[in-house]
Design a protein around this nucleic acid. Sequence first.
DNA 1: GTCTATATTCTGATAGAC
DNA 2: GTCTATCAGAATATAGAC
Lengths: 200, 200
Amino acid sequence: MAPQHDDARERLIEGTCELLWDRGYVGVSPAAILRRSGVGQGSMYHHFKGKSDLVLEAERRSAALMQEEFTAIFAADTTAFARISAYLLREREVLRGCRVGRLVADPDVVVDDQLREPVRETFALLHRFLAEAIEEGRAAGEFAASLDADETADTLAAVIQGGYALSRAEQSVAPYERAVRGALALLRASAPESSARTDH
Amino acid sequence: MAPQHDDARERLIEGTCELLWDRGYVGVSPAAILRRSGVGQGSMYHHFKGKSDLVLEAERRSAALMQEEFTAIFAADTTAFARISAYLLREREVLRGCRVGRLVADPDVVVDDQLREPVRETFALLHRFLAEAIEEGRAAGEFAASLDADETADTLAAVIQGGYALSRAEQSVAPYERAVRGALALLRASAPESSARTDH
DNA sequence: GTCTATATTCTGATAGAC
DNA sequence: GTCTATCAGAATATAGAC
């Protein structure tokens, strides 16, 4: 809608996304954003009301990006286990953590419904995809009939978010990878005829 | 070793623990610590070299507290599943998150080996307790023989840390509780004769 | 639209009196 | 040991020129 190359605004949002990912809301300053984006101070206050306004826009950008990513993964026409597995084993910048989940570590974000919303929405969508896959896999006999889809979905989502924390504490991807493999193994072991399965 | 009631120092550490828990390293300021602890500025710089020195002491305090808590839980003379279950179902301030795990959200902590160490050590101890319990339960036929103790231990630890993130995003304890129940259900369903088990 | 001052408040730390 | 200045620098925002 803008007269093309609304470049400064775009660069501000992208720079803020990166800084938010690494440093969170309190850890990011307008000055740092300007340095990173290579635009001047006046430019930022022209396009945005202030820090929280820019951050909100950047959060929405990050959330949309992540939602597209896992929407694509869960759209695959494969078994439920394969989709879940593809999501869990997706390439990730483990030591950097989750660009969306990171945000709720910050009390200023959690306390503000607007700033919290993109995170809430992203997790809600992921929950839906995971729960659907589990329900489907359960019906197909891929998983134990005793599993609760909503519970198991949150378990899997938590494994990812928590795996980041374990790995950051050790500065090694190993804990994250073990946590994910452990989750997939539990899921597989729950299958009615688990001993008969081959790895996919 | 001090002439008793080394009160200011103690209050500084305790106040810093609480503030760190809620706001992390970058979110906490000396001024806020002083307000909360009710001591003067000079007092703080007498007992500590500066912010990071005080924070390090507070981190060690928080880490020790948490390590005592789960050491006690895993010392119980019960089945492996009961101990794991007791750990996962322990009372927690879910929406506040983990007082230790919270710290590695902060890049200033992750980047500094000293500041990271209390977190690393705490997670390492938890891993040991969980892996031991899983190994024991596996040997006793409580869990699937196919489970890898180290992997499963990290899965469970990650569920806790990640459950906090999900719950903070929704401002509800429900996602955390579902994640934990889902993890226990997976563990139970993995048992060789899982259909024959009764709840503990 | 973007820039360069400028203002105000907070942060992290020091100095020196008591 | 604790207190009250005081300080340099950063954070967040505004003003006004171009």
